[in-house]
Computed example of a mutant assay.
Amino acid sequence: MPNKADNGSIDDPECFYCSKNHKLEGLMIEAAKLRVSTLYLNKDQTHQGRCIVAYNRHVRELFHLDPTDLQLFMEDVSQAARTLHEAFQPDKMNYGIYGDLVSHLHVHLVPKYKESAEWGEAFLNAPPSKKMLDPLGYQETIKLIQAKLLR
């Protein structure tokens, strides 16, 4: 069982964000290191540019962060969302913070487009059909994100 500290952080070797294990590699690809988090490209690109911002330490809730880390984390989320908007020009950016099954603090950034899947609805985390890219497609998408991030 994980060892829980007073600040909500836990030592959980089963967490794929902490262990960077094969489950993480099956779902996403690291795109960039941010101030207090990491930006990952989701391998399911049903929504072009879909990414996840994961806090670098294992905490479960936003309120477990001290005020400085909370501000830095939210700045990372905002910077990543701005980057995705510049790179992919979505009609709207959706943000999802859940954690029922994966308790490590992370935010889904899901660019939404008026003429594509789930417009006007919440995005499906596990849609019935997924849009997967070939390795070059992921590499090109990450290069585009990194180029916009560094501006």
Rank of each mutant, 00 (worst) to 15 (best):
S129N: 08
H104K: 07
N21S: 06
Q45E: 01
L70T: 06
L149F: 05
H108F: 07
N56S: 15
A126Q: 14
G8A: 09
A87P: 00
Y138S: 12
L62S: 04
E115I: 00
L136K: 15
F123C: 00
H22L: 13
L41I: 08
Q71G: 13
M74K: 00
A117S: 13
C18H: 06
L136W: 14
Q79W: 07
Q45I: 01
S116R: 12
S103L: 04
A147I: 08
H106G: 03
R60S: 14
S9A: 12
M132I: 15
Q45S: 01
A126W: 15
L105K: 03
D100W: 09
H104L: 10
N94V: 00
Y55H: 14
L133Y: 15
P90S: 11
E25D: 15
D6W: 01
Y98M: 14
I142P: 01
V107L: 01
E25T: 06
K143G: 06
A31Y: 05
L136G: 15
D134E: 15
A80Q: 03
Q71H: 15
L72F: 09
T46W: 03
D12H: 11
K131H: 13
D44T: 04
R57I: 11
I145S: 04
D91P: 09
P111G: 06
S9Q: 12
I10H: 05
F88R: 02
D6P: 05
E140R: 15
G99T: 11
P111C: 12
M132T: 15
H106D: 00
E14W: 12
P111H: 05
R35A: 13
I10Q: 10
Q79H: 11
Y113D: 10
Y40V: 07
C18W: 08
K23T: 13
L149K: 02
E118I: 02
A80R: 01
L105I: 06
S19R: 06
P13A: 14
T38K: 08
N94H: 12
N21T: 07
Q71Y: 14
M1P: 13
S9R: 08
Y55P: 04
L124T: 00
E14F: 10
R35L: 07
V107C: 14
I29N: 08
E25Q: 15
T83K: 01
P90H: 09
L72K: 12
K92N: 11
F16W: 09
D134P: 06
V53F: 05
I29D: 03
K23V: 11
